[in-house]
């Protein structure tokens, strides 16, 4: 059992159109796509939104990691299909799969292309208190660390004879339970250690801070943000006018 897919949310420095954008523009991207995904529960509009993310992933040079994050959703996908098909319909199940894929992809793009330090700076520039911005960026940086921690616990449990490689969906879900308590305890302990380390380095002693780096919202960031807002407006318009939209847009599976 491997939690390697969580690395698909780990920032990697690269030279690309997406990496060079301001973190705030990328936050708008994540929110735009999340809101758009929540607007619809039909297959075709959600498929269009999902497909529109792919060029961004390719231009952002994060295709490999993005595929990993989508692959990591396989359990959830199976869960959604079973529950929705049993209680609602297969059409709705497929639509929900696209919805979850859009939301995960939007945040995967954000996490993969935003440097945690830049994220803190952008939050501060949005007038968030420094302590909040720092904690947020720290939490963000700890996603892969927690994934490592979870992998260590899995390795330790398997090394002591715990059978985690049992086949079957129910078994795989059951296998996750013994992992949760130690992972929570380890994470709390780590949080205390980090807090002590920060305090011992005089974190919060000075109210006024100056910054070595500053970030600027440039012209390309404005263009990208306006483009995203326009997309969101179009989607909201489609949602409002959905009853008069062409038939193919509201297509459903016969079952």
């Amino acid at each position: 059992m491997s939690l390697e897919f969580l690395n698909a949310f780990k920032f990697m420095k690269k030279e690309s159109f997406l990496h060079n954008l301001d973190p705030r523009a990328k936050l708008v991207l994540a929110l735009t796509y999340t809101i758009s995904a929540l607007l619809f529960n039909q297959i075709i509009p959600l498929l269009i939104i999902f497909l529109s993310l792919i060029p961004l992933v390719i231009f952002g040079k994060i295709l490999k990691q993005w595929i990993k994050s989508i692959r990591g959703l396989s359990f959830l996908v199976l869960f959604i299909i079973i529950l929705n098909t049993l209680f609602l319909s297969l059409s709705f199940a497929i639509a929900m799969i696209f919805r979850i894929c859009i939301m995960v992809s939007a945040f995967s793009i954000f996490f993969l292309t935003v440097d945690p330090n830049d994220l803190a700076l952008s939050l501060i520039s949005m007038k968030f208190p420094y302590e909040f911005a720092f904690s947020f960026s720290l939490a963000f940086r700890f996603v892969p660390t927690i994934a490592n921690e979870a992998q260590n616990i899995i390795d330790a449990q398997q090394s002591r004879g715990y059978e985690m490689q049992k086949k079957g969906f129910i078994n795989q879900i059951k296998n996750l339970f013994p992992l949760l308590i130690p992972l929570i305890i380890c994470s709390i302990k780590r949080a205390f250690n980090v807090a002590e380390a920060l305090e011992s380095r005089a974190f919060g002693s000075k109210k006024e801070r100056s910054y070595y780096y500053t970030i600027k919202f440039s012209l390309k960031d404005w263009i990208f943000t306006i483009y995203l807002i326009l997309i969101l407006i179009i989607f909201i318009f489609i949602k409002i006018q959905f009853s008069v939209m062409p038939d193919w847009l509201v297509w459903r599976l016969p079952v």
Binding site: N152, I153, D155, A156, Q157, Q158, S159, R160, G161, Y162, E163, M164, Q165, I181, P182, I185, C186
Partner: peptide, 24 residues
């Protein structure tokens, strides 16, 4: 063989005990 099966014969003691200990 699975890790659990192999662990019957091989006892691996990790470098960092905190990576190996997880119970309450």
């Amino acid at each position: 063989k699975s890790i659990a099966e192999l662990s019957k014969n091989i006892g691996l003691i990790f470098q960092n005990p905190s990576h190996q200990l997880f119970a309450n």
